[in-house]
Design a protein around this nucleic acid. Structure first.
Lengths: 164, 164
DNA sequence: TGACATTAGTTTCATTTGCAACTAATTTTA
DNA sequence: TAAAATTAGTTGCAAATGAAACTAATGTCA
């Protein structure tokens, strides 16, 4: 009854803590968790709602479809996030009279105020997170991250609506 | 009715697609999604189950608590994953006679066979993912990733049981 | 034009998830 | 040693999630 002799002698071994998909998932989870805390505490909204607000703050008015594409959110998630934000008076909807299936979503003045409050918090959070990392290393990191993201999108296979 | 003039003139703007927490979350999601597909198709198990198997394959026998700590999983997730794996005959449990609150979980022979099959698939997947990235850039990437992960763990705040 | 296919968005349903409360065992402390 | 606190692990419950089905509108093609 001794402890922990690796049990699969013939199998190639794998150290989970060095396994890239695992690591990316963990760091991504921490990111969501930390930001979600900020959004939740300060504004009572969650990550999906924040993503919608962020896109609207950046682009003005968008259809739900656009939001989903830009923010990598499943359409049902967008639908529910928009509905919630509308219920809180943070976004408005205006039917597109040229295609009545869709409608344009935009921040209300209240929504814009929230956006204006969140953005500095989010940026400060990001700054604190990357503080002290050498700028050139960060550059490399971001470039590789882009490559991995693009390739991940393909490897994740379901090219189409991917929800995050 | 022109389109998309940025609506918050005074607010600092933020581009979500360049926002690091967002990007990390997206790439992490792709990683999970892609791997989950592999595990699901080939072995009918999910990510949590895979993580348990991976740790047991690496370390031999572990308590659920250890698994949670090593694999960054909430204890309820571990509990359910272990229960599921046990139901499928892939892991066994043995009570620790020196502390009867906990028990040691270990792969059964069937579990070891699955592990031996999954590991090469997982490693091949990882290899395909990072293919073509310059080794020195990958080194930098992994180092920064470690820093971000450690700091993210703190920023995520809930130091204690973090579930992923 | 009219049938068929596609698209935007919502809703239903089953699954997954995490929190909180719980049980049972062990450790601490007074 | 007895009460209080802590710990391992499970379960109840409510919220979040995604797949699939659905509605309504538009596009395609004969």
């Amino acid at each position: 009854m001794s402890t922990n002799p690796a049990p699969s002698p013939e199998a190639e071994t794998l150290k989970l803590e060095r396994f890239l998909p695992y690591r990316l998932n963990v760091v991504g989870f921490f990111a969501s968790r930390a930001l979600g805390r900020i959004y939740g505490e300060h504004f009572g909204i969650g990550i999906p709602e924040w993503r919608v607000v962020a896109q609207l703050g950046e682009f003005g008015k968008l259809t739900s479809r656009d939001i989903g594409e830009l923010a990598q959110m499943h359409k049902t998630k967008v639908s529910r996030a928009v509905a919630e934000l509308q219920k809180r008076g943070l976004v408005s909807r205006a039917e597109n009279r040229e295609d009545r299936r869709e409608s344009f979503v935009a921040l209300t003045p209240a929504g814009q105020r929230i956006y204006a409050h969140i953005v500095p918090l989010a940026l400060a959070f990001e700054a604190r997170w990357i503080e002290g990392i050498a700028p050139d290393e960060l550059k490399v990191f971001e470039r590789v991250l882009s490559t991995l993201t693009d390739r991940g999108r393909l490897l994740a296979g379901g090219y189409r609506d991917v929800e995050t």
